[in-house]
Structures are given as structure tokens and as C-alpha cells.
Simulated assay, not measured.
Amino acid sequence: MISIFVASAFIWFNFQTKVTPAFNEEEQVREIHMVTGEFSTETDEGKEIEAYRFDPGTIFLQKGEKVNLKIFGVNGDEHAFTIEGTDIKGKIQKGKETVIPLQFDKPGTYRLICITHKDIENNGPMIAYIVVK
């Protein structure tokens, strides 16, 4: 009888679906979603003007918090970017999602700056603010 129980337990444990947790509860990573957008209009003189932006324009993080900032490119073919005060830089492309892992050790306001649209002459400034408390 005991041998049947041991054999049954062996078979049951060895043929169970191996479940791997999607994340370690201690290592949770928050996702924040952002998009690139564009406003365009025409002046009374017939000149077309446009401005690009990140939406939302401000996000809030806690010091030490792990975040995946997911930016989806909607308007504009490509947005080269940098995050001021860090070594983070990259590109956001139209129709694609760019994932930027973030974790700040110092409180402050960090600017996510689109280099392509850095000033009014280039249909900007296209800046989002990352506020770390």
C-alpha cells in the first residue's frame, strides 16, 4: 500500500506543469504608458504650424521605484530622445513601442527631451517631466 502511495506521489509531482511566477513580488515593476502626439493648425496668413508633445506630459515616481516607461509613437516618424541628468537615450518610432526601464536614486525633476523637436524652430519643445519624490 505504501509503495502505491509513493509511486503515485512520485508520478504526480514529476508530471505537474512547472509554474514560473511572472514576477517576484519583491521586484514589481510599474508600467507607465505614454504616447507621442502632434497639434497642427494654420495661421490667418495660411502658414501651417505644428507642435509635438509627450502625453502625459508629467509622470510621478518614488525614489528607488522600478518603472517601465512605455512610449508608443503615434505622430512623427521618429523622435530621438534623452533623459536629462542620466545616460538614457534612444529613439521612438511611429507605430512602435519603446520601453525605457527607469529607477532614480535621487529625488528631483528629470526632463525627457525629444532632440528632434527641442525648440520652437523645430516644432517643439517636446518635453515630458519625470518627477521623483
Score class of each variant (00 low, 15 high):
F5C: 06
K66A: 04
I11E: 12
I83T: 04
R111L: 10
K106S: 04
I11P: 07
T109F: 05
Q62L: 08
G124M: 07
A128R: 05
F5N: 10
E97A: 06
K106R: 10
F104D: 00
L112F: 10
S3D: 15
N68L: 06
F23S: 12
H79G: 04
T109L: 04
R53K: 13
H33I: 07
H33T: 13
V29T: 14
Y52L: 04
F54W: 10
T20G: 13
F13P: 02
Q62G: 08
I11S: 07
M1P: 14
K106L: 00
L102E: 03
T58W: 00
L61M: 04
S40V: 05
Q93K: 15
L61D: 00
W12F: 15
K66F: 00
V131S: 08
I11Y: 10
L61K: 01
I4R: 15
Q62V: 08
G73W: 09
E121N: 14
Q16F: 09
K133E: 00
Q28C: 12
I113M: 10
I130T: 03
W12L: 14
G108M: 05
K91G: 02
K91H: 12
F5A: 12
V6G: 08
G73E: 08
E84V: 02
E26P: 11
Q93H: 15
F13C: 01
A7Q: 14
R30C: 10
M34E: 00
I120P: 11
K118M: 09
K66G: 03
L69N: 07
T116M: 13
G85F: 00
F15R: 12
W12V: 14
K47W: 14
K133H: 04
I100K: 02
D87E: 13
R53W: 13
I92F: 01
T58F: 01
V35S: 13
P56D: 01
T116Y: 10
T116G: 06
E97K: 02
K70N: 13
T36H: 13
F54I: 07
E45V: 06
